[in-house]
Computed example of a mutant assay.
Amino acid sequence: LPEGKTLKTVLTPEQYKKLDAVLVDYMGVGLSNPMVAQQMGKMSPATLLTQLMVLQYLKAHMGEFDPTNLIDQYFQKQAKQNNEPVGGLETLSFQASLLYGAPLKRQIQQLDCFLNNLDYYAQLTERMAKAYYAQDVKALLDLMNEKFNTTCDSTPEEMAQLLDNRNLDWASRMPAIMKAAPTLFVVGAGHLPGSKGVLKLLQEKGYTVEAVKP
């Protein structure tokens, strides 16, 4: 957060109380703990929201889910062990700006949506994971298109910035990378489905896209 601001100063007392209760539920301690207040009290709402989603899934899958060894990290480790090159389609600074650079008011809105709809977001994550493992791209798209019909919903501009524009950029650069060497691209599940998804964009360029057989 900007200098001089904390979550306690940017959130309403009600929002702060809800947040504290969620942290106690997920971690056993809340913002009244000095260490938690120091570590999380100055996080931007967007950064905190990302952490809360991970904590929510971790609580539901204790012993099954390791947030320090996610799928992209797994493949990077494998590549390095095999002395294979690892690159990126975007810079970390671009991603940080995209994911955490929304106006503070909008970040607070989205955090508040999560705090008020915990069960929905928990189920949404489970349903998306199930669709992903089932290779059901249509189900993924349907889940991404679910709406509250409130300010909780991403605007068309936000969706274009988060997904569509990046998909177009990636699909335009993938052919040259693949031509240079066989390449594994690891992207978020939300980038796969739809007419503007990476799979469709590659098909439109003449590529054959097939699901990996289990």
Rank of each mutant, 00 (worst) to 15 (best):
P214H: 04
N69Y: 15
K42L: 01
L124K: 11
M40W: 05
G101W: 04
F75T: 03
S97K: 13
N83L: 05
T151A: 10
V22E: 09
M53C: 03
A160L: 02
K5C: 06
L55F: 14
Y132I: 12
K59H: 12
F94N: 05
L58F: 11
Q123I: 04
Q51L: 11
P67Q: 08
T155H: 03
Q73C: 00
Q76T: 14
S172T: 11
A176W: 05
E210N: 15
L99P: 00
Y74G: 02
A139E: 13
L184K: 12
Y120R: 04
P156G: 03
L168A: 06
M27F: 06
D136C: 13
G30P: 01
A189G: 11
Q161A: 13
F148R: 01
D169E: 15
L23M: 14
L11V: 03
P85A: 14
L11A: 02
L89G: 11
K8H: 10
L199N: 03
A37L: 14
Y74H: 15
D66H: 09
N149F: 12
P67C: 10
K80D: 08
Q76R: 14
S97E: 14
G28C: 10
V10H: 06
K130F: 10
N69I: 08
Y74A: 13
V86P: 03
L52V: 09
L70A: 13
L55G: 06
L201W: 01
T9G: 07
I177S: 01
K105D: 13
E90S: 09
A102N: 09
L163F: 14
Y121Q: 08
L111C: 02
T9A: 09
F75A: 02
K17R: 05
M144H: 12
Q135D: 15
M159K: 14
Y120S: 02
P13Y: 08
K179E: 13
N117Q: 05
A176R: 09
L118M: 11
D142F: 02
E84Y: 11
L89D: 05
A46F: 02
E158G: 12
K147Q: 14
A180D: 04
V86E: 08
N82D: 10
T6Y: 08
T47G: 12
P45A: 06
Y100A: 07
L98D: 05
M159F: 11
N82M: 14
D66Y: 05
V24I: 11
M159L: 10
A180C: 02
M128C: 07
A129Q: 12
E146K: 05
K18W: 00
L58G: 11
T6D: 04
L48Q: 02
G28N: 07
K17C: 00
D169C: 00
A96Q: 15
V29D: 01
N116Q: 15
A60V: 05
K5A: 13
L70G: 13
D25I: 00
Y26I: 03
L52F: 12
N117T: 06
Q39P: 00
L49Y: 03
Q135H: 15
K205H: 09
N33C: 09
M40T: 04
D164L: 12
Q110M: 14
M40S: 01
L92E: 01
G4D: 02
G28A: 10
M53F: 08
K205G: 07
V36F: 07
T6F: 06
